[in-house]
Nucleic acid binder design. Sequence first.
RNA 1: GGGGGUGUAGUUCAGUUUGGUUAGAACGCUUGCCUGUCACGCAAGAGGUCGCGAGUUCGAGUCUCGUCACUCCCGCCA
Length: 595
Amino acid sequence: MTDLLGDLKRTHHCCELRNTDINKEVVLMGWVQHRRDHGGVIFIDLRDKEGITQIVFNPENSNAVHEKAQEIRNEYVLGVKGKVIARPDNMLNPNMKTGAIEVLIDELCIFSKARTPAFQIEDRVEASESIRLQYRYLDLRRPQLQKNLLARHKATMAIRKYLDNNGFVDIETPFLTKSTPEGARDYLVPSRVNQGEFYALPQSPQLFKQLLMIAGFDRYYQIVKCFRDEDLRADRQPEFTQIDMELSFVDEQQVMETAEGMIVTIFKKVLDIDLVTPFPRITYDEAISRFGLDRPDLRFDLELRDVSDIVKDAGFKVFANVVKNGGLVKAINAKGCATFTRKQIDELTNFASVYKAKGLAWIKIKEDLWQSPIAKFFTDGEKEALKKRLDLEPGDIVFFVADQPKITNEALGQLRNELARRLGLILDNTYEFTWVTQFPLLDYDETEKRYQALHHPFTAPLESDIKKLSSDPLAVKSRAYDLVLNGIEIGGGSIRIHSTELQGKVFNCLGIDENEANEKFGFLLNALASGAPPHGGIAFGLDRLMMLLCQEDSIRNVIAFPKTQKATCPLTEAPSKPSTAQLQELSIKISRIEE
RNA sequence: GGGGGUGUAGUUCAGUUUGGUUAGAACGCUUGCCUGUCACGCAAGAGGUCGCGAGUUCGAGUCUCGUCACUCCCGCCA
């Protein structure tokens, strides 16, 4: 039989007691971390969410209690009453906050016995992820995850306080809502009341927050779940949390400043780090040109250099032809890495091929020669120009990618990150932010043969580019901005379109005619026509932000109950098959492909 | 949809290259001893469908094929 709580009341947490508490009568409650039974005296490390205290059962103190303590095992839940005593002088434990004292127990309640845990509840014991997820309640007892979730709590508290202080109003928006075209795949929810019809779970509260601006709330925020039915990654889950906000009567600068203030507050509260603002701001074009990616990692240099003009007439036909066909030849100088072996170069070539690069040309710069399969194709003049452009010195190795601009930039940009990882250029505990602005408004979908919104269809184009919407849509830049931290996009937003005419024009570019626009976004167009303030906003990925703050490499370690890569939950075994009755009620039939 | 990695005791792993006796280690667990440990110690013990299914072979943890799960990445993620 286990014990009931009775009138036992906790007086302290397991991290609190010190020398100054000696002789106090205390009551602790917690889990058994370790038991050390010496036959006579029994030591137990009692753990709660705050820490650990050593408690002692001594037969000389109470035989009956000592007897009962012998059945205690790991992870049992105890309530104990006893006296705080000093440890013998040579028995202090400097590794524990409570290492100067221990509690000699007079009264023991065993609230719960525990079956042997599937894995040991210690940070140094790393169980496989599927076991950890199956027994997530055990996993969550580990100090690391407790620390991460407490940090997440601190962050959200700081966010709410900051936004409240800045006049933002927390307003909830529906989860059962309407499917929107474009964007990610929707999660659908069948409607029982309206047979054959479905709600969609929101990919973001985008349209609702715009409606709130039109309603006059001026500043809105929400820490809210969003749903996208796409494949998972280490930093991506089908349900994730956004810090979502929207402001009226603001331009890009004001949104970015407000967001910066929030990030500064979070870093101060969670990590006690003082960030310097304003964060650097670079345009999309500059980011791509210098770093190859729209989310540059600014913790290291290794910038990309365009050498297309130098090699356009070179004897190396691969380069020359790429330039002739509108492609780009860019290069990256890995200073001092001419010692790379053939194997290392092959690995980097394979790495680049993942991003569609057809090859990775290289030149090792030695004291008196260029060692390379391609060096012989360059004239002295071309070599001199390359040397100058790429700052080539003996001991360097330079890598080239030649392809269509998109591939060249992506492959070399990713290679830049990989080189930095391999060369150890990335220091721990560094946080390099940058805003990336003026994204293209549209890109062209080759498979569907039409333009697509890069951000979303409600993003405003730069005012000066509006006239290009019909003549040269791909040249139109938008009033969108992303916040990038250490090469990872943690937030993004834009100034929105607040006029029906402009919104119509953009829909037009996207191939959405008036009928379709009215059918899908009629409510937004009506709202815009009913007095819409200029407005814009931003949303941050809370999971990603916490992943970076907690120095984790997966968002699963900052989410209490995350999904596996196949979007399942090993703990609850979701998703699962509905009953026939449920399906009938919804008038849904499963057409089986297998079984 | 595609590519890579992993899968052996409750847990983490070794063993697979080159098929061959009874599949090992550490931690955990059980029992006994132990009054100053703190990753306690000592002794003994239990614990295995080598992910699953076929195949090759005298013989498969090891080789082949298929399949499942977990994971990383590409595609996808306005």
